[in-house]
């Protein structure tokens, strides 16, 4: 878990913040909110209230404007998650080719329910809606890079989990 630590972007990320805000006309810096939340999530792991307040201060908007947006969109994690969040598509076309089986396999292999974090803090998984990769299903993605894994089978899921465990 993230202990109390000062919420502040790295110098590099702050440069990126300026670059993003410069994309919009004067006084329209609120447009940078979604990109900045992505940046914050990549940097801090999830969007805690403190992180959202920090983003609000960067954009000079009210914190509520950040909360209402972060809670509307599905990509922002409003509670701590595993280091790797495995997001499996659970929509129709993927289910026609076995997505539900993949979700069951993940649940069994990780030993946690959807949305929970494994005891080692490495993994959590969730079923998400259509990822626009229906021809390559079943698929899953892992943030913050959003790398894609396609045509999943029990073996390839096994391999992926081993690979990620070995990285740590």
């Amino acid at each position: 878990m993230l202990a109390v630590k000062e919420i502040k972007f790295s110098t590099e990320a702050l440069k990126k913040v300026d670059e993003i805000i410069a994309r919009y006309p004067e006084s329209r810096q609120k447009s940078a909110l979604l990109p900045l939340l992505h940046l914050a999530q990549a940097e801090f792991g999830w969007c805690s209230t403190e992180v959202m307040d920090y983003v609000a201060s960067l954009l000079n908007i009210n914190p509520i404007e950040v909360y209402e947006v972060a809670s509307f969109y599905t990509m922002y994690h409003l509670k701590p998650s595993g280091k790797y969040v495995l997001e499996v598509c659970r929509t129709g076309p993927c289910c026609l080719v076995g997505a539900e089986k993949i979700i069951n396999i993940l649940e069994n292999k990780l030993g946690v329910k959807e949305g929970e974090v494994t005891p080692d803090g490495l993994f959590s998984f969730k079923g998400v809606e259509c990822l626009a990769a229906c021809g390559y299903g079943p698929v899953l993605q892992i943030g913050p890079e959003y790398t894609f894994y396609e045509n999943l089978t029990e073996e390839s899921v096994d391999e992926l989990l081993t690979q990620l465990r070995n990285k740590n």
Binding site: R23, R28, K30, S31, A32, L33, L34, P35, L37, H38, L59, I61, E65, V69, F72, Y73, T74, M75, Y76, V128, E129, C130
Partner: peptide, 22 residues
């Protein structure tokens, strides 16, 4: 501009709202 994960933003006026940071 990246979205945040919402099907509704494919509707053009929702997309514009989203692009305005809402």
């Amino acid at each position: 501009q990246p979205g945040g994960g919402a099907y509704i933003c494919g509707e053009e006026t929702a997309l514009l709202e989203s692009l305005e940071g809402k």
